[in-house]
Nucleic acid binder design. Structure first.
Lengths: 333, 333
DNA sequence: TCGAGAAATGACAATGTTGACATGGGTGCG
DNA sequence: CGCACCCATGTCAACATTGTCATTTCTCGA
């Protein structure tokens, strides 16, 4: 390697052709005799030749690489699937995904963008850990840019986000359709979009069903990043009141887990004595709980996939795509 | 972009120097007058020039890229930190990490290796999701290779793994030192290394303390990938027997979560009426449980870091590194 | 058998950069 | 004053490949 890496010319010599013919073979050009092709392929295999991507890049002006900038805990449990979706879709389209993680304070952001642009990425996906508004630096716009799990305030960039509102409507409807008439929603911090949209969808759906009583409870207090759970307190109030609900919808799976504990402490069996449903489908929680937690899966994988597709479709329309969420029904509701 | 990407020559023209001088500036070569340097840097900024990595690669024969192959759920919640550790260390050393995920049946493995080698990666890290033996294909050995969270059966490759045995000794010792005398260990599937090593460390430590009674319970049944939890049954037996333990050590955090539920069902308070400790430190579980779960954190981040360092140190010794685990003490033990 | 047209192959320039080496102008020292 | 030397800068080849266009070889119909 290094010094003695075999080149297209070595292969040509071994195969007894011009190096241009070798180039044709590795690029699947039609105009090559089957015998010539065979000879060349044999030589390639014998010498262990691999095309040099760097040289290819210069001539063809295509890097075959797409950059993905994952903000903060982009590698968190919440959004690994976004990266996976992007990676698999890119791979399927013959592209390579380069992932860069940005730390909390975004101090390596500019350096990251520089590195990606130096490598002549054909597009960039900016993926956020949780659904929120962002304001991407102008540097980023040097190549096609798609936002995933976030959107820009000015509405100038294509983006793909989960349809939180519809998800909340769906899960609420499910609780109603399975016979529940008193539903408490344990909301997230309303400062985050998911908090606002989920409670809006919940309440709108409740209001469409006059026979159903539904209300929201503040289950999280404190600032983002400094949040404190109020679930135990809320649950204890709910269970001891004369307005005891028959179903509890949780803003996220961690809340559902606390709810399970509260129920068990009160000798109630989740899913039997009280329906529990939730959002996020963190499998490690949803599948470990007994009974399994029925929860709305966020379309992380699909967002990654969509972002790549949009980028490669060269569709320059600025679309603001909302992807629907899947309800994963287990036994809790 | 594409057609009109500015090159080193454009910069040279704008700065009124030869393009070689521009090359010197972007490579931080000493022999450039401050004024010349300034002129060039201004031109670079004005034109938005970025060096073309492809061209650099050809001449310098260095790609600046390290490949990381993450097996299966390498992107799982368990080992994202390994990737993060590798990424940050690579970044700190001026290298770029390219991550490829291999699917369950490894069918895209060869293609993945090809892609990495075509890009002339300077080394490859093979990272496994869970600690086990692997048998890397010879293709991989074309460049320096380091195994992370796994080891090769033949012992021919450098690797870095968690010191499961020492971790088990440490946590057991902690339980003993905090006054517990009857300790049950709820073991993992003994087919996996963590299962064997953790129970070995537990039992060895117990045997060093004649005053302490300790034993293992089979908490998981079934094959890898098809595992069934026996925790409820085991716990119910333990809590109803006259040999009730005063501390429970769990093979992993998911087991600890089930243990919490069993305790609460029996009106016992985890951490108060019964100590609970565990392995893995899945924060989403360990921090959501009340009280917080005391658990041994696996050195995923450090393994990623070590792998990069070893690769870049050009230390060709085949070391088999065991990294120690950190005990994260919360309130459960 | 010949010629036309298509198919296969080759020669050579071009890509954007760095390495090796050359040049020119200033500085220090005898 | 002249010579040697160093530093700044420049010239040109080399890198591994693809694009363009030219050349050779083959095929088929008259």
């Amino acid at each position: 390697m290094g010094a003695g890496m075999t080149t297209i010319k070595d292969v040509a010599k071994a195969a007894g052709t011009s190096f241009k013919t070798v180039s044709r073979v590795i690029n699947n050009d039609d105009n090559v005799t089957p015998e010539t092709r065979k000879k060349v392929q044999d030589a390639i295999k014998a010498l262990g030749y691999r095309p040099n991507t760097g040289a290819r890049m210069i001539r063809s002006k295509k890097s075959g690489v797409i950059g993905l900038i994952a903000d903060q805990a982009g590698m968190s449990v919440h959004s690994v699937n976004l990266i996976r979706g992007a990676q698999e879709e890119a791979w399927a389209q013959g592209k390579f995904l380069m992932v860069i993680n940005i730390d909390d304070n975004h101090q390596n952001m500019d350096a990251a963008i520089d590195k990606l642009l130096e490598r002549r990425v054909e597009g960039i996906i900016y993926a956020a850990m949780y659904h929120h508004a962002v304001n991407p630096s102008d540097e980023l716009r040097a190549v096609p840019l798609v936002l995933a799990n976030c959107y820009d305030e000015r509405g100038e960039l294509p983006c793909v986000v989960p349809d939180e509102y519809a998800a909340a409507c769906d899960v609420t409807r499910h609780l109603i359709n399975t016979g529940h008439r008193r539903i408490a929603y344990l909301n997230l911090n309303p400062r985050i979009i998911a908090g606002r949209e989920r409670s809006r969808g919940f309440l709108d759906t409740i209001h469409q069903h006059p026979a159903v009583d539904g209300w929201t409870e503040k289950a999280i207090s404190g600032e983002i990043g400094q949040e404190v759970s109020r679930v135990d307190e809320v649950m204890s109030n709910l269970l001891n009141s004369d307005r005891r609900p028959d179903a509890i919808l949780c803003g996220k799976d961690e809340i559902a887990m606390s709810v399970y504990f509260s129920l068990v402490e009160h000798s109630l069996q989740p899913g039997h004595d009280m329906a529990v449903a939730s959002f996020d489908n963190l499998e490690i929680i949803a599948e470990s709980l007994k009974p399994g937690l029925s929860t709305m899966a966020l379309p992380h994988y699909e967002m990654g996939q969509w972002a790549i597709r949009h980028l490669l479709s060269e569709n320059l329309e600025i679309s603001h795509e909302r992807l629907s969420c899947d309800f994963i029904r287990r036994a809790s509701a």
